[in-house]
């Protein structure tokens, strides 16, 4: 599969691809007979420097990092970037999802969880400071708002910082005047880690069709926090997901299980978009 950076690939060369891929001009070169000029390529490896303009704790485990790149960087809400870091003379590359929206936020925004034993996340949490510069690569990723109809119901579900890209996708849907209901589920280890609940309450009060469903796994939650698993919460919401569009982000086990669950509930395989956060080995 290749991506056209300029020009539109013929529809026949996109046969069978998911909507999000079609909309981002991906195509199958083996069945592509271009009808006009197409520029294909891949600039995802291009490096740019970015300045940390803001850094603050969202929760005990999550810091939010605002980055201002040295050049304008086009991206879609929900994509991710690679950060390139040098720590103790060792080079590391880590992918982090963008929670920002290009039409709303001036900076690129990352929400980064402190990983147990993770060198890079510890360095970001403890050492990286506002005003410092980091190297990054261009935004990539296909889990982006991809609705054909603004009336379609949306289900967004994530665990941990899987919430970051969903926050971007949600605001992209609202930015595009999405009219159908939008239900966002966030699973966290405890109530403190529901780190965007205030933002969602505000969005709920200003957008009739948006509903936020926080789910905590352990501890006895307070009022409004569901003790059920996300799957059970979805079951309370709808018996069938036929006609829905589904966005899932977080650890691979969660994403795979929920992808299957939503598919069995009737969501079309072409309308389930996934972003699996794979842990680094070192």
């Amino acid at each position: 599969m290749l991506q056209a950076l300029h020009g539109s690939p013929p529809p026949d060369s996109q046969r069978g691809l998911k909507l999000n891929l079609k909309q981002q001009n991906f195509f199958l070169p083996c069945i592509c007979f271009p009808e006009a000029d197409l520029q294909i390529g891949n600039d995802s490896r291009k490096q740019v420097a970015a300045t940390v303009t803001r850094k603050f704790a969202r929760s005990p485990l999550v810091v939010e990092l605002h980055l201002s790149p040295e050049t304008d960087i086009p991206y879609r809400a929900g994509q991710h970037i690679n950060l390139l870091c040098r720590i103790d003379d060792e080079d590391f590359v880590r992918s982090y999802s963008l929670s920002s929206h290009p039409g709303v936020d001036e900076d690129l925004v990352l929400q980064i969880a402190l990983v147990d034993g993770g060198k890079v996340s510890a360095w970001i949490h403890d050492s990286l400071a506002e005003g410092e510069s980091v190297a990054m690569q261009m935004p990539v990723g296909t889990c982006v708002y991809s609705c054909v109809s603004v009336e379609q119901p949306l289900l967004l579900a994530g665990v941990g910082t899987g919430l970051a890209p969903l926050y971007g996708i949600l605001r992209d849907a609202l930015h595009n005047n999405h009219q159908g209901p939008i239900h966002l589920f966030h699973g966290a280890s405890n109530e403190q880690e529901l780190y965007l609940n205030r933002e969602f309450d505000l969005l709920h009060s200003s957008n009739d069709g948006f509903y936020y469903h926080p789910v905590v796994r352990s501890e006895a939650g307070q009022r409004g926090i569901s003790q059920k698993s996300i799957e059970e919460s979805i079951a309370c919401l709808a018996t069938s997901l036929e006609g829905w569009q589904v966005y899932l982000c977080g650890n691979p086990k969660f994403v795979k299980q929920l992808q299957k669950h939503c598919f069995l509930l009737g969501a079309s395989s072409k309308e389930i978009f996934c972003d699996e956060f794979v842990s680094a080995q070192n």
Binding site: K256, K260, F263, L264, S268, S269, I272, C274
Partner: peptide
């Protein structure tokens, strides 16, 4: 056919175990 067929396969207890842990896409 593909979604209807695959949904039937995943929901069929006789064979669903063979499709555990596979990449759905």
């Amino acid at each position: 056919a593909v979604d209807i067929f695959y949904r039937k396969v995943l929901a069929d207890d006789r064979i669903s175990d063979f499709f555990e842990d596979v990449d759905m896409d």
